[in-house]
Design a protein around this nucleic acid. Sequence first.
DNA 1: AATCACAATCTAATCGATTAAATTTCATAT
DNA 2: ATATGAAATTTAATCGATTAGATTGTGATT
Lengths: 308, 308
Amino acid sequence: MIAKTNYQPNQIAKSLRTKRTNIIGVLAEDILAFPTARIINGISEYMEHTDYQILLLNLRMLDSLLNQYNQIIHQKDKIRQALSFLIFGTKVDAVIYIGMFDRDISGVIENMNKPIIVAYSTSSDDHVCSVTYENEAVSAESARHLIDCGHRRIAVITGLADTAPAQKRLHGINTAFKEAGLVLDNALVKHGDWERASGYSCMKELLEHKPTAVLAMNDFMAIGAMEAIKDAKLRVPEDVSVMGFDNREVSDFVFPKLTTVEINLKAIGFAAAQAAAEKLSDDGQYANESSVIIPSRLILRDTVAQIL
Amino acid sequence: MIAKTNYQPNQIAKSLRTKRTNIIGVLAEDILAFPTARIINGISEYMEHTDYQILLLNLRMLDSLLNQYNQIIHQKDKIRQALSFLIFGTKVDAVIYIGMFDRDISGVIENMNKPIIVAYSTSSDDHVCSVTYENEAVSAESARHLIDCGHRRIAVITGLADTAPAQKRLHGINTAFKEAGLVLDNALVKHGDWERASGYSCMKELLEHKPTAVLAMNDFMAIGAMEAIKDAKLRVPEDVSVMGFDNREVSDFVFPKLTTVEINLKAIGFAAAQAAAEKLSDDGQYANESSVIIPSRLILRDTVAQIL
DNA sequence: AATCACAATCTAATCGATTAAATTTCATAT
DNA sequence: ATATGAAATTTAATCGATTAGATTGTGATT
């Protein structure tokens, strides 16, 4: 009978000798930003069957009420500090950066000696590998869905105009319009700031131009728009159809239920973890330097109606 | 002129010698469970000004669609495995366990040699320190609010009846009833399972007894109840008042906006991190062995009306 | 039986900090 | 001037694994 010696090797000693901790640093701009937790969930799903672990650094950029989206874009110092701690420290083998907006990540730190993967957002310099989601094609699909339902006067509520997602989505919408032989009327495009209130005020102005449908670039602005439509004594979707983006939890709870776009956040996390692990594997032959784009998909619910 | 030597000591070597990693393991039953991310945010807020870090282990108990709440309660093996990895390994100095339901944590692992703090839920054996939230008093306050508004026929939709939160909340409601000289009519108490659909079906049955108000033990069941009320051609709050619990994001988006209870999740995380750090500090004199309870508060919105 | 190749085992150096022990420095007191 | 003690500095052991190198053992070949 062999005594069951439950010996656990000292991971610290092992790490000191091998210079490998099997820990992957996850640097999140804000864990309360809606994609973050789901992306981390994808990362941990991948890691369940490896012996990697997650060291989580939460920058809490959104946490303070004062921090609006447009301020967050300029918080380079906080990022550099955290990133250099991870990159030049000995605690992690690689870094996954979960960002809300595109940034020049490699420009923040010189001489990076560890693999870094950007998840959700992308790094503006393209030799940093990133795992992001599909924006353009699915936005085109959204617009096409409205066009197929007979809509011609389609309004758009964008996000902050200088952000990459807003630009990509607008580009996709434009593509669908052109395909259908339509042109996007500038009077029917209003720039929001991703928040519910801006959706409301944009819609209020748009209503003067009598659109039959509105494409909002996220669910919160779409819901704000729905509220403006109701306040104008119009009905969703009979008078105005509404489409959102993100498939936030609320979109299934508002009335009517919001038609929107689902981003596959878990898949982003999974792919990012996989990419990090591949870059760390001995035979990095399968490591693809190129970035990966996870497909997004339409979620059809009750805010879009056929036009007669 | 002194050359700026940006020397970073090797944390691994340091840890090997000192047997301290300055890493606190955060073991979450599921990062997608609604309290988890906010609690972690509280933990990282505390840690911002210390040199502790978070090693995150996500058990993903809710992730699979098959896993219902009542199944999760019985997943002891997964927990023991992860907990013993953290407790007997060398990677973390302490563990914060974020649980959804009360469990016997110390019974899961023998001879724990590291501090462990249970956050949100509690450990059924009371010599494990926990940081949880106030249930009873605030539930009493909810009930009292309805009573103060003139309600007498108050229905209750509970959560899974064998869970501690459901029992504590019911107890609080009972207390408020007694104080007001009322008795809780058993016909007006229905047992839900925390999900929206159960709120709907419970409310449908409750409506036969013509309550003027309903206390649901979470927001999702409250929203289900609101839908049942609307489907019965009654109005919220004019015909039936509704109260929820949790202050989920949706409660501000449904119509009318849901009156509910806010749990201070960030404070739970902050206090848990603080407790862990105190247990690790050299002079553990201020380390309070007793558990801490974070106050919850009512969020008054639009689903409760005065009765004439 | 001796030689050689190769496998298996054992020994010792290494990773990079901490920290205790040993040594040197320096000032003070007799 | 020398002894003594405190302070400052230097040296070396330690943490616990990995791993290269030395050693021993095995078996096959001539």
